[in-house]
Design a protein around this nucleic acid. Structure first.
Lengths: 284, 284
DNA sequence: ACGCCGTAATACCCTGCGGATATCAGCCCC
DNA sequence: GGGGCTGATATCCGCAGGGTATTACGGCGT
């Protein structure tokens, strides 16, 4: 019943990620035999087989897949403990606010103008905000409902808006003053981009596979993909494109999110001033 | 930037709990000097002082208090990883449902009648359900809004009801057919019991200090305390007492809760049948 | 003032665990 | 059947983590 050490979990995740003991060992900076031994020991202590090693390769068992998820959150929690403790000892300790690169600049600027204690702003890739919050690299995040997974976080709504399609100005659709999701999803020659799922695989479809905001921006600029985004998310200007409202796309709510139960005075103050500032803007 | 090991976090929590290196070392089963060294090393690695050691004793610093909270959740996450992985390898693996001892039997029975795959039921003390969910001892919990802290969990409402005051049948209030919270809180000779806060200290007040459901039941039976609880929470029958509705007490909603983002097929099935079963009962 | 007690820190040794190297064992393909 | 993959096993070694002995320091009693 002895508990696991974080080292064992890191080793396990490396193997689960590479599905190859040699490469995993190299990544960890150790030799392969100790890694094999460590994983074997872990399996014996848990009383569960984590990998199927058979002809030509290593595969995760069901239990192994469970541990991938659990070990990830556990290591995040440990990392968060270290980071938050370090920052608690820092007398200055600005709040760290994470937002996805290329999200609404206007809203972020208003938010930063409203708070007197300037938080440190970190930019991340789409969908990565949750990870930053969980492992303590950030204290607050700007996220979007319903697209982001807000499980485990407390949130406060900032702003709700409809979505627009970004289409080349030369395209026939550019003359429309509104269109539907069904139309936007089936434009010949302008397929919508595909984002990776949580497990890293891509859904099927005609559109280009995309990993980062800048890839996406590039593809849009090249006229290779059609984009449906919240009206205010205009981080880049595409001079050759126009925005057409998508009438039946779900409204996107921009929210401030922070780890559930960690409402420090600093976070509470930020949230309060942010929400009142947004309300003031809404009314005008 | 080397990450912490769970051993260090356990050591730290032991010292933070005992506020005494010698006793903490004894509890950990090691000698005092290595413990001192380990804590000193931890402080140097984090670059933060965790304890103030000065005249007559040890005290937590602000950073130390942060680490107490963070280390607790981190260790829970690690323990959860081990437990859930072990159970994932078990072919039978019944779901574990935790509910506070002495909560509504009637509702629990209906719930268990409704689901075909019988979950294992664990009883815990009041407010402990969250801990069971976080460290993986349980998969689902029956909790109550707004009294329990549901931060970090997904929930599904089962049942909402008002609250009643439990008073001795011989007491003048027993003849009333309703009363208010203010009245219930100020009954001469029948003060309301006080529960410990999260840090283990008790709020001030005239009522008896109480830690467990059975203590409370005993005190009620003895006519030493007045109790305000949801109408259905009648785990024990007190033959000498009557229940008087408290008209302005907030409604209590009984909810099914599970760790955010861990909606396994088993949990989803349990939640679905539970909610439909409850709805059926409501309608009749 | 002095010494005693209780506490954490320091000094030092030693064992066992985590890591490295060398080798073996299955599997596939040519 | 041999060679090139893979992961497992065998064996050794160094050091991190733990033990014992001792010191440092502050409070308190007489």
């Amino acid at each position: 019943m002895d508990d696991l050490e974080t080292r064992e979990l890191r080793y396990f995740l490396a193997v689960a990620d590479e599905l190859h003991f040699g490469r995993a060992a190299a990544r960890l900076g150790i030799a392969q035999p100790p890694l094999s031994r460590a994983i074997g020991l872990l399996e014996r202590r848990l009383g569960v087989r984590l990998f199927d090693r058979d002809r030509r390769g290593v595969a995760l068992t069901d239990a192994g897949r469970v541990l991938v998820r659990e070990a990830g959150t556990a290591l995040d929690a440990v990392a968060a403990a270290a980071r938050r403790t370090r920052r608690a000892g820092d007398p200055h300790r600005p709040l760290v606010l994470v937002t996805k690169a290329g999200a609404s600049h206007e809203l972020l600027r208003r938010l930063l103008d409203a708070v007197e204690s300037q938080p440190e702003v970190v930019l991340c890739e789409v969908g990565e905000q949750a990870h930053f919050l969980r492992d303590g690299r950030a204290d607050v995040a700007i996220m979007h409902r319903p697209v982001d997974d807000l499980a485990g976080f407390d949130t406060e709504d900032l702003h709700t808006e409809g979505q627009v399609a970004i289409v080349p100005a030369a395209h026939p659709l550019a003359t429309r003053d509104s269109l539907t999701l069904a139309e936007a999803g089936a434009v010949p020659g302008l397929p919508m981009a595909r984002w990776p799922r949580l497990d890293g695989t891509y859904p099927d479809g005609p559109g280009p596979e995309v990993r980062t905001q800048s890839q996406l921006a590039q593809l849009v600029a090249l006229g290779r993909t059609l984009l449906v985004i919240p009206a205010s998310s205009r981080a880049w200007q595409w001079p050759e494109h126009v925005a057409v409202p998508v009438v039946d796309a779900p409204d996107i709510t921009t929210v401030l999110a922070w780890p559930a139960g960690s409402r420090s005075p600093e976070i509470a103050a930020l949230v309060r001033t942010a929400t009142t500032a947004m309300e003031r803007v809404e009314r005008t």
